[in-house]
Amino acid sequence: MDCNKIQDLILTDYIDNQMDEKQKNMIETHLAQCIGCQEFTALVKKTVVEPFIQAERFVPSENVWIEIKDNIMQEQSVKPGLWDALTDGMSNLLRAWKPGLVFASMAMLILGAGLLRQYSIYDQELKSAKAVETMEYLSSVTQTQEGGAIDESEGFGTTIEKYFL
């Protein structure tokens, strides 16, 4: 591994002790024979690690807890309004019914898919029946036309026809 990759690891996992023993040994073997990386490690420790070792720990003033406590007591003393009660109730209900809702949704999906399929089959049957009907009609019309013109002299035998003829 070249020095750039080694130095990337030194800058992160190595100085933070976030690597396993195998990786650590590999870095230390490299460090034992590379002066450049030794100097880099020293620089990192001096500029990146040491300044934070003695970082003071601060304590919040006592007023912080007093104010938090007051705010909580104030919130607890305020009775929940109708809207809060409704939203709380709804969310509790949803939480309790969650498995049931999941099951119901799945059942609805399956049912929906079944109905859709059923409708599609019915629709296809309907369309094919209509197609047959249309074909039959067209065929009868065609046969009529092919059979030649209606012989008008024969007439239809109606009263009005007799009157005019």
């Binding site: 990337d8 800058l11 992160t12 933070d16 620089l43 500029t47 990146v48």
Partner: peptide, 10 residues
């Protein structure tokens, strides 16, 4: 992020 931060500190 730590790498870039530390490079900036160096």
């Amino acid at each position: 992020r730590l790498k870039r931060a530390r490079e900036a500190l160096i």
